[in-house]
Nucleic acid binder design. Sequence first.
DNA 1: GGCTTATTGATAATGATTGTCAAAAGCGAT
DNA 2: ATCGCTTTTGACAATCATTATCAATAAGCC
Lengths: 129, 129
Amino acid sequence: MKRNTWQREAVRTALGTQMGFVSAQDLHSNLKGTGSQIGLATVYRALGDLATEGEADSLQSPEGESLYRACSTGHHHHLICRGCGLAVEIEADDVEQWAKSVAALHGFSQAEHVVDVFGYCSACVPAVG
Amino acid sequence: MKRNTWQREAVRTALGTQMGFVSAQDLHSNLKGTGSQIGLATVYRALGDLATEGEADSLQSPEGESLYRACSTGHHHHLICRGCGLAVEIEADDVEQWAKSVAALHGFSQAEHVVDVFGYCSACVPAVG
DNA sequence: GGCTTATTGATAATGATTGTCAAAAGCGAT
DNA sequence: ATCGCTTTTGACAATCATTATCAATAAGCC
């Protein structure tokens, strides 16, 4: 049976207070910073569970780190700022349909798609060099 | 100046003979298997260069590995089989437009997007459990 | 053939993530 | 509140991909 531990709750809460995506490592530092003595492995496990249960979104940054964010239910994608981590949820029925049809067209099944847009939000546009 | 080494050529060739995406590690094993004594670091470097020069596509598998594939020029996306690695290049002007407009709509600049579909091709559909 | 310098490659270093396993805590029954 | 069974935790080791290091090598130019 799934048990209710303060650690899991702490992760859920910490994730909820984040405005954007965070890595497990960051979230862990974050928690430690607020006095929590939660372990790193536990944060990974909690995030994994949260993602599995649909309470969190996970995606990979271009650098290959796994990032997580509390999410509303349902399937959606994100527009993520490389500067501040701000994430905007975007609905993309068109893209869903497109992904589905492309997969079907080529005889692929169990299709999963990765659709995310990275850029700099208006507040983070770096000085163009 | 950029020099022409057999190593770089070997990587380019090996990549060209692959039908789908391969990881740097795989490509390295592959090359070693054919008798090449190329070093792992060199394979990483060559792949990175190839990708930078636009001669290869790179993307990240859901597991977080970087995968590479010789590619035609231009920007496009992929439908990748989890089973055999088969990759189908897909053009998606619609998606390009969508990504661009979504980014613009939210004031994001320098938008890059990650759009790939993973699934099982008709030959690799696993027994449904 | 030499010189200069980019490139290589063996290995160490890094860094994220997962596995291990004994100790601790949760939950239901008492 | 306590007991007991099980899940969960957490410190640390292990794993794995990738990058950095740096002396030795080889390209390209004279």
